[in-house]
């Protein structure tokens, strides 16, 4: 069962007006894997996640989660099935406390608020959010704390597959290391399959089992980090547009 396919995307396309954001993309993510999804700006990484999580309805193609067709289902149902995500541009709950925001995530699997709060506390501790700030309002915390809350809020829904969308953007180098450690532990200790959308190569190369490269909406290539780093197509795609 360890090679079971968690997510299968086949022939996914999405266009906005004249721009083709995703062009016939097919890929598989297997259980307990960390898959890095990389590509230059405008490659279609976030569009892919939006199509899988139901924010966008793809123009064509199918999305299967644990063998079930979830194409075009509304986001809340997809979350209920077990797909969660974090946000490239943080979407914080400014007027709720940190613990309340994460509890809202945990309430997906229980009606009991007290139980959900306990779970939220555990998740926040797991991602290393400072305990003294649990009761703080979202408007009063720092950027890296927001990223941790965002991550905790998604983990609290007990997903089987979690997409992490450019989590280290805007963070300082030592903060990147902190996040990398958390992401690895989410995968190893919690057993959550991860799709890591990233721009920062050093980060994604260090944590991923496998890398998928998107370029101009197409799947360019995939393989282990070492293979991908050597691939001339990838080098050209990056250097041809702009160096990272």
């Amino acid at each position: 069962m360890s090679n079971a396919v968690v997510l299968e995307v086949s022939g996914l396309s999405k266009r906005f007006g004249g721009i083709v954001a995703l062009n016939n993309v097919s890929l598989k993510i297997t259980k307990r894997e960390i898959v890095g999804i990389i590509g230059p700006n405008g490659a279609g990484k976030t569009t892919l996640v939006n199509c899988v999580t139901g924010i966008y309805r793809p123009d064509s193609g199918k999305v299967f989660f644990l063998g079930e067709d979830i194409t075009g289902k509304p986001p809340h149902l997809i979350a209920l099935k077990g797909v969660a995500r974090t946000w490239q541009k943080i979407r914080p709950f400014y007027n709720m406390s940190v613990i309340e925001a994460v509890t809202a995530g945990a309430l997906l699997r229980t009606k009991d608020v007290l139980k959900a709060r306990e779970e939220a506390t555990e998740v926040l501790e797991f991602v290393g959010f400072p305990k003294s700030k649990f009761e703080m309002l979202g408007r009063n915390i720092t950027l890296i704390e927001h990223k941790l809350v965002d991550l905790a809020r998604a983990i609290a829904t007990k997903p089987k597959l979690l997409f992490i969308d450019e989590v280290v953007a805007g963070l300082r180098p030592h903060e990147v290391d902190v996040i990398a450690d958390v992401v690895r532990r989410v995968n190893r200790e919690m057993g959550i399959t991860l799709g890591v959308i990233e721009h920062v190569m050093r980060f994604v190369m260090s944590i991923s089992d496998r890398i998928v490269v998107l370029h101009e909406g197409r799947l360019l290539t995939q393989g282990t980090p070492a293979e991908v780093a050597r691939d001339p197509l990838v080098v050209e795609a990056y250097l041809g547009t702009k160096p990272v």
Binding site: I55, P75, H76, A79, A84, F93, Y94, M96, R153, A156
Partner: peptide, 11 residues
């Protein structure tokens, strides 16, 4: 606070 984020956690 945020409808899109709320939907993504299953609301």
């Amino acid at each position: 606070e945020d409808e899109v984020a709320a939907e993504a956690v299953g609301i």
